[in-house]
Design a protein around this nucleic acid. Structure first.
Lengths: 134, 134
DNA sequence: GATCTATATTCCTTTGTGGGCATATAGGTT
DNA sequence: AACCTATATGCCCACAAAGGAATATAGATC
């Protein structure tokens, strides 16, 4: 039952926060750490949990693993992710995560943020675009 | 986090089936047993699980406990129950449950079905209406 | 009051999960 | 090759949950 698997993924706050943030666009692990304020192991494990169940996909970009929502979600997943979005909009935890994301997100500013002592990594997005430019 | 609690309730197939059937209207435990084909303990425990978390409500009717979806669901719950309905429509397990429900449901026919060796109980609906008539 | 029916609860075992710590791995840099 | 950074994995513990068997309870009936 795929539906059950989806709900199993959704029944943990950390994973909900991850998915909520991911709805805004792909992100690497270190940014999750920064945005959620949770230790690396925790984030990494939850991402693995989601990955093995097909709720997220990931791709390597040099040192970084960039996670994203699946390109072709099943109808059930699609509906549930949409529903999740409806539900998180009003809840402080999720709003704050998005706010922290936006602080980092403005693509070009990321490197600066990280260099200034944040997560300590460069922006995978910048890197990606430089690759794309190659 | 109420949302997490909701998803915890949804991440078990038996509970999904219960909720799916309940979306059609209130029902007593013995009918769940018959429709889902699961033992009494299992049904009863899952109903208890749902009840303590506010996903269902129940009311005594003589010997029967009649379960129903909450009269005033939270916005999150409302959305998720709706989403669940969207998702179950296409899945065989859930369709079959509904089909079995319909066989029993035609209110007046219930007593006959049960008397003929089904779950062995009378219809709480009939009983309810006779009470209402009192 | 004894008994029956419908349902709930308790006890037990097995399995899954979350979190933390330590360690492994992969790719990049010098 | 040595080292650094980002990320993943293995091991351990505590705990929640699912399922089954037996038993308890509440209300109805005789």
């Amino acid at each position: 039952m795929e539906l059950v698997k989806i709900y199993e993924c959704l029944c943990d706050l950390t994973r909900l926060r991850v998915l909520n943030v991911l709805a805004q666009g792909p992100l690497c692990v270190c940014h999750f750490q920064e945005i959620l304020g949770e230790p690396q192991v925790k984030i990494s494990k939850h991402l693995a949990y989601l990955r093995t169940r097909g709720l997220v996909e990931c791709e390597r970009e040099g040192n970084w693993m960039v996670y994203s929502l699946p390109a072709k979600p099943s109808p059930e997943l699609k509906r549930n992710l949409a529903c999740l979005q409806d539900c998180t909009g009003e809840t402080p935890v999720f709003q704050k995560d998005i706010a922290r994301l936006k602080k980092i997100a403005p693509a070009e500013a990321v490197a600066a943020v990280c260099a200034s002592g944040g997560c300590g990594c460069e922006s995978p997005k910048r890197r990606r675009s430089s690759i794309a430019a190659t």
